[in-house]
Simulated scan of single mutants.
Amino acid sequence: MTGERTGLSAGWTEELERELRRSMPPGALLGLVLEADDRVLELGLLRVSAAFRDEGHVGRVLTRICAEADARALTIVCTPTDEFGADRSRLENLFRRHGFAPVAAGDRLSEHPWERPPEPRPASVGPTVPHQEPRG
């Protein structure tokens, strides 16, 4: 799924990325890459600028991503790494707290070794609509 965005994800994942970037405090950069198809939401990158780490931003962003995936009944896939100065052990603990777990190679939905299945939601709850400022 890496590479070009699919037609299914081109709208909502890009809007979610923009929304989450706007939610960061002034001066904080959010590196975020999401791609989706009809079964999987790939979390290709989740990174906050170093000066803003340990302030809860990654957890908040991940909670929002999980809510959107749940609303669409998508499994989230990712590969925790120690790239970009991240502490892989702390990152894996964060993912575990959000319902992710390592998956055996033969059982994976993608090349990513970690997955989070969607949590069941009531039928009346659908994807959220991003807040938009009134135009005037």
Rank of each mutant, 00 (worst) to 15 (best):
R5M: 04
R5G: 05
T6M: 03
T6I: 03
T6S: 13
G7H: 12
A10V: 03
E14Q: 10
E15A: 09
E15Y: 00
E15P: 04
E19D: 12
E19Y: 11
E19M: 04
E19R: 15
L20Q: 13
R22G: 10
R22W: 14
R22K: 13
S23E: 11
S23R: 14
M24L: 12
P26W: 08
L29T: 13
G31V: 10
L32I: 15
L32F: 15
A36Q: 08
D37V: 14
D38M: 06
D38K: 11
V40Y: 09
L41I: 11
E42D: 10
L43Q: 12
G44N: 15
G44A: 11
L45Y: 12
L46D: 05
L46K: 13
V48T: 08
S49Q: 04
A50Y: 02
A51G: 14
A51I: 07
R53D: 01
R53S: 00
E55L: 15
G56H: 03
H57C: 01
V58R: 14
V58K: 10
G59H: 10
V61G: 03
V61N: 01
L62A: 07
L62D: 09
L62H: 03
L62G: 08
T63A: 15
T63I: 07
R64W: 06
R64A: 14
I65R: 05
I65K: 09
C66A: 15
A67S: 12
A67M: 13
A69I: 06
R72Y: 05
R72N: 02
R72M: 06
L74W: 00
L74F: 02
I76P: 02
I76K: 00
C78D: 01
T81C: 06
T81H: 11
D82F: 02
E83V: 05
E83C: 02
F84M: 14
F84K: 02
F84R: 05
A86D: 14
D87H: 04
R88K: 11
L91I: 00
E92I: 01
E92Q: 11
N93K: 09
N93Y: 03
L94W: 06
F95W: 12
R96P: 01
R97N: 08
H98A: 12
H98D: 09
G99Y: 11
G99M: 13
F100V: 05
F100I: 07
A101L: 04
P102D: 00
V103M: 00
A104R: 03
A105D: 01
G106L: 01
G106K: 06
D107Q: 08
R108C: 00
L109Y: 06
S110W: 14
S110M: 12
E111I: 13
P113S: 09
W114D: 09
E115R: 05
R116L: 10
R116D: 08
P117F: 13
P117M: 08
P118A: 10
E119H: 15
P120D: 08
P120R: 10
P120T: 08
R121S: 07
R121C: 06
R121I: 04
P122M: 07
A123W: 14
A123I: 07
S124T: 13
S124F: 09
S124V: 08
S124L: 09
V125L: 15
T128F: 12
T128W: 12
T128C: 05
P130S: 04
P130D: 05
